[in-house]
Simulated assay, not measured.
Amino acid sequence: MRWCLSGPKPDILTACPFAHRGLHGAGVSENGMAAFDAAIAAGYGIECDVRLSRDGVAFVFHDATLNRMAGRDGLVAMLDAAALDQLRLPDGGPVPRLSALLARCAGRTPLLVEIKADDRHVDAICKAVARDLDGWPGAPVAVMSFNPHAMRWFVKQRVEQLRGLVVTQQGKGRMGAAITRALALWLAKPDFVACDVRDLPSPLSRRARRQGWPVLTWTVRSDADRARAAAHADQIIFEAGHD
């Protein structure tokens, strides 16, 4: 099965490190505005996660469930946008809408938007993300996902949008991982790949770099991770305290 990465190597992916879910820690919640403001002030790019409300609005939130970060039972997908607006993160800040984060970045801060979609039904969340991105034409934004169907949506509907495939080999057999990865690459036709730092170097990272395509790596948390990333990737997505 053949695959290819599309388009030229974009500077926005390699110009600066990306703060994973913002520059959080020490009382500053992940994927919250305080974390994003800290990353912007420090001159970093931002990586964030996006899930969909019941009524089709893109919110910046990692987990499918609300327990860990919003202190209540239930699923993000079961609440309307108005209800999600009322929730508070552990640091007291709101759960941001993607549109609010884009406004805070103001078309200047590089932004990686990881689309959280758990199955093949990606149309609604991809439409919501694309709708928000329409308000910031030319902004340094890339979308990415573990789910190749989400990136396939952009291939078909917004082919000009910079897009990436997030990959990990952890917990997967070698043969099964290779087959799954080949199919995912064929579906997603990514402009870049974001590899688990624990996997580096990998056949995929080597092949992409030989062809001159960007390899990002996540989540860099230690000096050992930094050294591995420096040898085998083009830019890092890091946790606070390990930039």
Rank of each mutant, 00 (worst) to 15 (best):
I115A: 12
A117I: 02
D118I: 12
V122M: 03
A124S: 15
I125W: 11
I125E: 04
I125A: 08
R131C: 13
L133K: 01
G135C: 07
A139Q: 08
V141K: 00
A142C: 14
M144P: 01
N147L: 03
P148T: 03
W153N: 01
F154D: 10
V155G: 07
Q157L: 13
R158G: 14
V159N: 12
E160R: 05
E160K: 06
R163Q: 14
G164F: 12
M175H: 03
A178D: 04
I179A: 12
A182H: 06
L183H: 00
A184E: 13
A184C: 12
L185V: 03
L185K: 01
L185W: 07
A188S: 15
P190Y: 10
D191A: 14
V193S: 09
D196N: 15
V197P: 09
R198N: 14
R198W: 11
D199Y: 01
L200C: 08
S202I: 02
P203K: 04
L204I: 08
S205E: 13
R207H: 13
A208W: 14
R209M: 05
R210L: 04
Q211S: 13
W213D: 10
V215S: 03
V215H: 02
V215D: 04
V215M: 09
W218G: 08
W218F: 03
S222Q: 08
